[in-house]
């Protein structure tokens, strides 16, 4: 019996593929896509303003009306995207020399050490890292203590730039690693060829190395950008500033699911656009 089934499947590769994938596809379909659809559907459902109860299938565009009618939602979106872009650019600027050092300059021993150092923060809990930064940034924290002799006060925990700093710190490894891998992929002979043809260090970097790193940078930026765009703990803990995620969290936790769901469309749309942009840069060949 079993051998008959086996024979039936081996003669029908598509059927066996389907049978193999049916379980994971069902999982993704119902749990992942399904919950996303339910979430987004909330954006179109009405809510009782007193009890906070959502009325499913009572269709309305009120939530979108609220978001479009209040400029604060646009301001928050622009602030979040701005910080995410800034974090991505900063991470790229820091990652390039670091990755270059690891890939091209460091001896194998040092390379292993630096790679461990770069990835080490990834082993620590996200919250531990954020709280560590809080102790650095708070008024009587490490940074305040360092700059006190200069007559400057520590930044405290309200500055928006704290978010930029901490998010850059958090996501930097996600930029360094693909850039490092991208550099590793560039054959040494290409750099020699450039030097051979008269290109000095900077010209070689600009004309030969950098263009070939664009896919790697785009791949890294998907991480830094999307993780920054979606973060709501860092801005809350070190900045006291609201990001898109905070508005969604606040509204979902505090009783206005339709607004949270409607606002969720925004980061989804931004990420879609960003992924399309990154794909054009060849990011997905570099992941």
């Amino acid at each position: 019996m079993i051998s008959r089934i086996a024979r039936w499947f081996s003669a029908r590769p598509r059927a066996s593929l389907g049978a193999l994938l049916s379980a994971p596809l069902t999982w993704i379909g119902t749990v992942y896509i399904g919950s996303l659809v339910v979430l987004l559907a909330h954006a179109f459902w009405s809510k009782d303003s007193f009890t906070g109860k959502v009325a499913p299938f009572d269709w309305t565009l009120d939530a979108f009306g609220q978001i479009l009618g209040n400029p604060v939602y646009l301001a928050i979106a622009l602030r979040t995207i701005g910080i995410a872009v800034l974090v991505t650019l900063t991470a790229a600027i820091i990652a390039l020399p670091v990755a270059y050092y690891i890939a091209r300059i460091a001896s194998p021993r040092v390379r292993a050490l630096v790679l461990v150092a770069v990835t080490m923060p990834l082993w620590a809990s996200y919250l531990v890292k954020v709280y560590a930064w809080r102790t650095i940034l708070q008024a009587n924290g490490l940074l305040g203590w360092l700059v006190a002799p200069l007559g400057i006060e520590g930044p405290g925990l309200t500055e928006i730039w704290n978010s930029w700093l901490v998010l850059t710190y958090l996501w930097l490894p996600y930029m360094i690693l693909p850039v490092y891998a991208g550099l590793e992929r560039i054959p040494t002979s290409l750099l020699e060829a450039s030097a051979d043809l008269g290109g000095r260090g900077w010209v070689t970097f600009r004309r030969v190395i950098f263009p070939q790193l664009i896919p790697a940078l785009a791949a890294g930026s998907i991480f830094t950008f999307s993780l920054s765009l979606g973060d709501y703990i860092v801005p809350d803990l070190v900045s006291d500033a609201k990001f898109i995620g905070n508005v969604i969290y606040d509204n979902s936790a505090l009783g206005s699911l339709p607004v949270a769901a409607a606002y969720s469309f925004l980061p989804i749309a931004v990420m879609m656009a960003y992924l399309l942009f990154a794909r054009r840069l060849g990011a997905f060949e570099s992941l």
Partner: peptide
């Protein structure tokens, strides 16, 4: 880059992100 020699590499070492013309023009441009 300060030697008046040029090299043809075993693996060719062509710049993959440039066209044939750009590859050839590279040394002149630099």
């Amino acid at each position: 880059f300060d030697r008046d020699v040029n090299t043809v590499f075993q693996d060719y070492a062509l710049f993959p992100h440039m066209t044939v013309a750009e590859n050839i023009a590279y040394g002149l441009e630099v």
